[in-house]
Amino acid sequence: MIINKAYVSTIQNGVDLSKFESDLKDHIFKPCEKSSAFSSGWVPVIRNSDCYLLQSHGCGLFRFCIETRKVDSSVLSEELAVKISNIELQEGRTVGRKEKREIREDLETSLLPSMHSKKAYIYCFVDTISSLLVLGTTNASQIEKIIFYLVETFGDSLGIRPLAPQASPSKILTDWILNNEAPASLEILNQCDVAESSEDKASVSFKNIEPFSSEVTTFLNQGFQVKSVAVSWADRLSIKLSDDLMFRNITYGDSLKETAFHDSEGGEMADLDAMFAITSLTLREFLSSYFKWFDIATPQYDQEA
């Protein structure tokens, strides 16, 4: 499926999907120049297509590309060592810290054009029914770049805002395990991370251990709190929930995958369309419940948890 990890934010203003694609096309990706370390922009939802926005059930899927070019650290270190050695040998002096830094910067600039670039493609979607923006990444740098570019593209017309729970997510996750207060639609799976709330921040990761077992609850009774826990939701999603409000290790139930397969009419675009329809509707319903569990305000949600 197309979203297996996610950062979610709310959008405060209405979105006109009919205009959304034309705005994306005004800010398309341009390949990174040889002398540049970075380039980004919107790309078609599939390669060799002119479709920048795929719509389904009030949602719009789009894709972001980040291209980076970086000098390999081992190459830079070797070139720097040779350069410094030559200076010290030929001029009979020691290269100081400031000069070494300047030489390193000059080498990095000169070597950059010969380096290969790397591209990362991130699917995102906007849900106009639930007023949500979903980015298919949990990488802080990528999230920052995408949101920056969304503002470049749309100004502040979207009104992107981070999720703002009214209660501590870590306390809620801890109560789910310590006091057996998890919502009825969730099954707690055998993976969780706990950490101290003190400045020392000692942490422990548990895998393949029953979260309600004494191995885990002993730490919780000593003041540790749950930082993340893997759950299964209504036999449709497995997902790792965290106190940073990121969604990791999202896997979809076999029945959802089969539905997407049968709904596709064949071809790459049809396959993507079917997967997006299932993904967006499933995440919309899941997030409706999630917002209630964590007491996150949104005017659009009215489904039952």
Rank of each mutant, 00 (worst) to 15 (best):
12 Q>I: 07
9 S>N: 10
142 Q>W: 12
255 S>N: 12
60 G>I: 01
190 N>L: 09
244 D>E: 11
214 S>G: 00
60 G>K: 01
66 I>A: 06
231 V>M: 00
281 L>K: 13
275 M>I: 08
291 F>D: 00
143 I>A: 06
12 Q>C: 10
110 S>A: 12
228 S>L: 01
212 F>R: 05
207 K>D: 01
107 L>W: 02
93 R>Q: 07
13 N>R: 05
116 H>E: 07
37 A>Q: 03
115 M>G: 00
155 G>R: 11
48 N>Q: 09
184 A>N: 14
7 Y>F: 15
149 Y>C: 06
201 K>G: 01
267 G>E: 11
180 N>P: 08
115 M>S: 13
120 A>M: 06
29 F>G: 08
260 A>Y: 11
28 I>K: 11
282 T>Y: 12
58 G>Q: 11
272 L>P: 05
22 S>F: 01
239 I>Q: 04
153 T>D: 06
243 D>C: 12
134 V>N: 00
46 I>R: 09
227 K>T: 05
183 P>Q: 13
165 P>E: 09
229 V>I: 08
161 R>L: 14
206 F>E: 03
2 I>V: 07
170 S>P: 00
297 A>V: 15
58 G>W: 01
104 R>W: 02
111 L>Q: 03
283 L>N: 04
301 Y>A: 02
226 V>C: 03
283 L>S: 02
73 S>H: 11
113 P>A: 05
70 K>C: 09
300 Q>S: 15
128 T>D: 08
10 T>S: 14
210 E>R: 04
172 I>V: 15
258 E>Q: 14
91 E>K: 13
60 G>N: 10
20 F>R: 09
34 K>N: 07
181 E>L: 15
185 S>F: 12
138 T>Q: 05
175 D>Q: 13
205 S>I: 04
173 L>Q: 08
198 S>W: 11
68 T>I: 13
276 F>H: 13
28 I>T: 12
30 K>W: 09
155 G>Q: 07
163 L>G: 03
267 G>K: 11
158 L>N: 00
124 C>I: 02
285 E>R: 15
203 S>F: 06
217 T>W: 03
259 T>M: 02
15 V>I: 13
120 A>G: 02
101 R>E: 10
31 P>W: 00
258 E>F: 13
156 D>W: 02
167 A>N: 08
26 D>W: 02
115 M>Y: 09
300 Q>G: 07
235 D>Q: 14
256 L>C: 09
19 K>V: 04
2 I>H: 08
55 Q>K: 14
253 G>F: 02
123 Y>G: 01
94 T>A: 10
79 E>I: 05
262 H>R: 14
276 F>N: 06
231 V>K: 02
208 N>R: 14
113 P>R: 05
156 D>F: 03
211 P>L: 04
16 D>S: 12
229 V>M: 00
42 W>N: 02
243 D>K: 06
265 E>G: 15
262 H>E: 13
230 A>L: 13
117 S>F: 10
162 P>F: 07
156 D>H: 02
162 P>Y: 04
223 G>A: 09
62 F>C: 04
151 V>R: 15
174 T>A: 05
280 S>Q: 10
196 E>Y: 04
33 E>G: 14
122 I>D: 03
172 I>S: 10
136 G>H: 05
15 V>G: 07
86 N>L: 03
122 I>E: 03
265 E>C: 14
65 C>T: 04
4 N>H: 06
245 L>V: 07
